[in-house]
């Protein structure tokens, strides 16, 4: 994370200015689509449906947001997204950390073999499993239930791999001391290993949360009841009976994006680091 402002002594003003301009242009280009969506969300439907500039002829208005919020669905979906993502995050991190610790510290028959299987499973794309998983949920009668949404999302072999690598790097001496004092494994794990692992746990948790919040395919398949949908699936599936309302659609998009953007602004460093450490887990 160290910045290297000092490392280019040969570089003088001109180069820096050019770099700055190029960078600024790219950044503006990258922000533009989202800003355009925000601008549209603050227009009237009439302005939105005609070719108008950043601000429509009718001026700024929060009409689209008010319309959207008065329609109960968006609140329900946002709440569903929030609590299911939190549960998925807690469960994933918990079971992955426990397993990772076992692989890192404990000795048991078949350890290497089992770990190899789990690492190999990282490559299995979830998309390959949609048919049998849906069938399984039918069998367990979990279609259109929160557990049907949550459970298949808590298995993350990549997170076990990442956490095991991290635990391998934690000095074992502290644990040994505690064990000599008679602390059990679970106690050692809870009071010594976990506190030392907060950064990586946070990184994994953030990563899992982002994925759960944004996941589309599985929630799209397993939930049909509009009262149980998450934001991404609800926005995709349900439409306004009166036809496409552009300003409202953009207001919904902005609302769905907002929580994660706020999280990013607050925890930028952790997220950046999190992506760097958990990047291997893929998307």
């Amino acid at each position: 994370m160290r910045s290297r402002q000092t490392r280019s002594p040969g570089e003088k003003g001109a180069g820096r200015v050019v770099a700055f301009v190029v960078l600024a242009l790219m950044a503006v280009g990258w922000l533009m689509p989202f800003l355009w969506a925000v601008a549209t969300a603050f227009k009237t439907e009439t302005d939105a449906a005609s070719e108008s500039g950043w601000i429509g002829g009718d001026g700024l208005t929060t009409e689209a947001f008010r319309e959207m919020l008065s329609n109960g669905n968006v609140w329900i979906w946002a709440l569903n997204s929030l609590w299911t993502s939190l549960v998925i995050t807690v469960l994933t991190v918990t079971i992955s950390a426990l397993a990772a610790y076992a692989f890192s510290r404990l000795r048991f028959p078949g350890r290497r073999w089992l770990f190899a299987v789990i690492v190999a499973a990282i490559i299995i794309p979830p998309q390959v499993l949609i048919i049998p998983l849906f069938y399984e949920m039918l069998t367990f009668d979990l279609i259109d239930t929160p557990w049907g949404l949550i459970l298949p999302q808590i298995v993350a072999p990549a997170m076990v791999f990442i956490l095991k690598q991290f635990f391998d790097g934690v000095p074992i001496e502290l644990e040994d001391a505690a064990r000599v004092d008679g602390a059990g494994r679970l106690r050692v794990f809870w009071s010594i290993v976990l506190p030392l692992s907060r950064p990586v746990m946070a990184a994994v948790a953030i990563f899992v949360f982002i994925n759960a919040w944004n996941n589309f395919l599985w929630p799209f398949l397993v939930i049909n009841d509009t009262n149980l949908m998450t934001l991404p699936t609800g926005l995709q599936t349900v439409i306004d009976a009166h036809g496409i309302q552009y300003a409202q659609t953009m207001a919904q998009a902005v609302l769905a994006a907002l929580p994660l953007i706020v999280v990013f602004l607050f925890f930028q460093r952790q997220i950046v680091k999190g992506v760097a450490t958990t990047g291997f887990g893929g998307r």
Partner: peptide, 28 residues
């Protein structure tokens, strides 16, 4: 990485879209 001023803004600009759900990206 050249360390130009405004680091957080650059990171936000380029990384922010990744935080959006596919549905939101598609709608935009």
């Amino acid at each position: 990485h050249r360390g130009l001023p405004g680091q957080w803004l650059w990171r936000l600009s380029f990384f922010m879209p990744f935080l959006l759900a596919s549905t939101v990206v598609s709608q935009i």
